[in-house]
């Protein structure tokens, strides 16, 4: 119990207390302490990386060994990762190498397309969700349409009222106003809540009230 729970909790409390106070101490020693902590965290992070890579290879080799459904894809994932590592260390990572081509032509292509797929799904979801059922839902719909129109060159041309009054704001101007004023006000209030939430959670962790990060077991 002492070694498995109380000492780890004491470590959390002491490091939390030290680095909570460190922020308010404008002294060289305090800065050195902070820099040393950052260096230490980088080294710990290195081993965190090892843990992550072991987990990846272990999970996929298990799938292959057990001949789980679609296990062949695990073989592809492992094979491609090993190829990347091999060429990354043998050829280097400069432009034109296998490593960089795999990144620019394969990874960027796939990830770019995956994210762009969301445009289709988000639009079909919006069709169902955005039906103007109430005044507030209508506000959401109108804000979304104006921002979408304001982000494209066509939005400027669709601002027909500018033919009558040239100084009137275009879709782009209105979209920018929505993004910079009411949108920012809402985001700022949420950020305030998030900030206070982080502080409370951090305090709970330092004081040992929140312990879920330690995992289950003794």
């Amino acid at each position: 119990m002492l070694w498995k729970k109380q000492i780890p909790l004491a470590i959390t409390f002491i490091t939390g207390l030290v680095f909570g106070i460190q922020y308010f101490v404008p002294h060289r020693t305090s800065e050195n302490l902070f820099n040393a902590y950052v260096d230490w965290e980088i080294v710990i992070g290195i081993f965190g990386g090892i843990l992550a890579y072991i987990s990846f290879y272990r999970a996929h080799t298990m799938r292959i060994r057990k001949k789980a459904p679609a296990w062949q894809y695990s073989l592809v994932a492992i094979g491609i990762s090993l190829l990347m590592i091999f060429f990354g260390f043998i050829q280097g990572t400069e432009t034109g190498t296998f490593f960089s081509n795999m990144y620019f032509y394969v990874l960027v292509s796939i990830e770019g397309t995956m994210f762009s797929l969301l445009a289709f799904y988000i639009s079909s979801a919006a069709y169902r969700a955005f039906r103007a059922r109430s005044a507030q839902a209508t506000a959401l719909l109108i804000a979304a349409i104006i921002v979408m129109l304001g982000r494209i060159p066509l939005g400027e041309q669709l601002s027909f009222w500018k033919l009558i009054w040239s100084n009137a704001p275009s879709f782009t101007d209105i979209a920018n106003w929505i993004l910079n004023i009411p949108n920012m006000a809402a985001k700022r209030a949420m950020n305030l809540g998030i900030g206070l939430g982080i502080m409370m959670l951090s305090l709970k962790i330092v004081l040992g009230i929140e312990r879920s990060y330690m995992g289950s077991g003794d």
Binding site: G49, Y53, F56, Y73, S74, V76, A77, I78, G79, I80, S81, L82, L83, M84, I85, G88, F89, T93, F99, M102, Y103, V106, L107, I110, E111, M114
Partner: peptide
């Protein structure tokens, strides 16, 4: 999907 995972892991390790 699995090529993405493989390339990402290899890229991250290097």
């Amino acid at each position: 999907e699995h090529v993405t995972v493989g390339v990402s892991i290899g890229y991250a390790i290097v």
